[in-house]
């Protein structure tokens, strides 16, 4: 009998230790993944001027696109400096919004489309935004895993004992004017024909 109790106690201790380690190490990994997003955005903002310089000759009539690229790049640099995840995410989105515009220009102009420099530019831009997306995905996945363990039994007991807090990740606001639906909005719109 005493052995059974002892065995259960040992298993329990092992489980508590491993759960505790899970929370601690995932917290560290979440921190690292935020840094990774920053790194990838920084890489992105350093890469763009290079690509601009090499492809400018082909796209000289599309000055608007370069202006947008430049402003996206500036937003990225300042977001990375601030270290704020939310700002980083917004700045990353600015760049991914420019990409389809370049695509349209390239597709509509066979001469540009045929140039190797421009197709390399497109490949690199696509890759760099993929990198940012995957870095964000890692943060999202880790945060989701962590937060699920926080609230589900039995790991929530360990989280409670050692006071682990919820991770924000790429936070979407839980409240805000854009998430509220007023009563008038739920009504069926009336249309007079």
């Amino acid at each position: 009998m005493i052995y059974i109790i002892l065995a259960i106690a040992i298993i329990l201790v092992f489980w508590v230790v491993s759960t505790y380690n899970y929370f601690v190490s995932t917290k560290t990994r979440i921190g690292a993944s935020i840094q990774e997003i920053g790194n990838q955005l920084k890489r992105q903002s350093e890469l763009i001027p290079n690509l601009e310089a090499s492809a400018e000759g082909y796209l000289k009539h599309e000055k608007g696109i370069f202006d947008e690229l430049t402003s996206a790049r500036k937003a990225i640099s300042s977001a990375v400096e601030s270290g704020d995840v939310k700002k980083m995410a917004d700045a990353g989105k600015m760049l991914s919004d420019v990409l389809p515009k370049i695509q349209v220009v390239v597709e509509s102009n066979p001469e540009i489309k045929a140039s190797e420099v421009v197709s390399n530019l497109m490949d690199e831009l696509r890759d760099t935004s993929d990198k940012v997306m995957y870095a964000r995905r890692l943060l999202i996945d880790l945060t989701a895993d962590y937060n699920v363990k926080m609230v589900t039994f039995p790991s929530n007991v360990v989280a409670g004992i050692f006071n682990f807090g919820k991770q924000k990740g790429l936070e979407t606001p839980e409240e805000g004017p854009e998430l509220k639906v007023s009563e008038s909005e739920t009504k069926t719109p009336k249309i007079n024909l």
Partner: peptide, 8 residues
């Protein structure tokens, strides 16, 4: 490279 970033 990208998948490795995504998997950490």
């Amino acid at each position: 490279e990208n998948i490795a970033i995504g998997e950490g």
